[in-house]
Design a protein around this nucleic acid. Sequence first.
DNA 1: ATTCTTGTGCTAACTATTTCGTACACTGAT
DNA 2: ATCAGTGTACGAAATAGTTAGCACAAGAAT
Lengths: 218, 218
Amino acid sequence: MARSPTNIQNKASGRAGEAEETRLNILDVATLEFADKGLSGARIDEIAERTDASKRMIYYYFGSKEGLYRAVLERAYTAVREIDADNTRSDLAPDAALRDVVGATFDYHHQHPEFVRLVMNENILRGAHIGEIPGIRERNRKVVEQLRNILARGVASGHFREGIDPLELHMTISALCFYNVSNRYTVSYGFERDVTAPKILARRRGNVIDIVESWCRA
Amino acid sequence: MARSPTNIQNKASGRAGEAEETRLNILDVATLEFADKGLSGARIDEIAERTDASKRMIYYYFGSKEGLYRAVLERAYTAVREIDADNTRSDLAPDAALRDVVGATFDYHHQHPEFVRLVMNENILRGAHIGEIPGIRERNRKVVEQLRNILARGVASGHFREGIDPLELHMTISALCFYNVSNRYTVSYGFERDVTAPKILARRRGNVIDIVESWCRA
DNA sequence: ATTCTTGTGCTAACTATTTCGTACACTGAT
DNA sequence: ATCAGTGTACGAAATAGTTAGCACAAGAAT
């Protein structure tokens, strides 16, 4: 029952760097596997097989299947910061800034389906693990603050109308970008249409930007 | 693990209808279970336990775990027809019709989270089973045709602008309605906000309708 | 310098349990 | 007596997690 440390951060001793390398390799494989099959669908044995390490190593570093899952989720959420981290967009006009945010969000989702699938899975699990990941609150807040800023500038410049809640805007953008990837296999079932085809994707991207902008426009 | 002795469930009596009753009872329980945990997360034994029947019956009627899952999915998809089946909305003005469709879609998703979760799960499975469900193609087409109709009427009456693809509109509506339920546990993590609270829900509903309308408006 | 000790990184084989599915016997209505 | 419907107990495979211990490097003791 005792939770194992799992914190072994190899520095100083042993074969330098080897440990971290193994850890990351496991994390990479596990990310694909969990994104592919979900927490309950993924198999530790299979992850172990695809790794350069052995099954024992997974338990050595991550303690349990859930521990591994949490580590995977945490890394994916950390990586997602690149969307907004350095992009303050304060140099852009409000409407251009908004379009830029929406476009970047759309692209990120499209380029990282494994992240989308991990989030889907986490929602299937009713967010059981998301609370344990440090920094998510801050990240979410930051995104919303950025939107609030863009909205305020837009209202001041006459581009946008008043009364739009940044959080609602955030949900709108997320929904439009997320859904395309998350529901890829069921959405337009019955139509001759591959939602990943460049042409269709580009059109959808443009539409998503338009939708958001037309809602905000004064 | 001594399970309950005898689950006497039988009222005995006429076979007529009893079989179907058992079948439906299994289907009900399985729907909740699959929606809750997904295909790989759900446990046949647990489903059996919560049923008025026994595990044997599940295999008797549905053959396998996947067979049961498929039956569950099929029924959920059949049930969803109620959104649009009789609602042609031809009596409404185009803009009112659109608002009505969006509102009804929003409500349906909110009222049937188990359907949303089944669809999420099916997407995790990369739509492995959706193809085997008869009538989905037609249903999807019908929805899109209804939107095409509304759009055409709206363009004619000057309410809507030209050039909106009904399929894109459908995706937009679905995305905005689906996401609220599907990503309930991760969306606004970090905000003091319960996305199921009546007030917040009503506001979101209004916004979703506005978003769609403002995009279509001439 | 050589040996002893210690701790990390790691492997292979094993265990205990879970879990899907089945064999078989039974029951009551027609 | 037949047969759809049913319960109980079990089998076989899969699967999460563990046990026991080896290899190697670096520092301490000799």
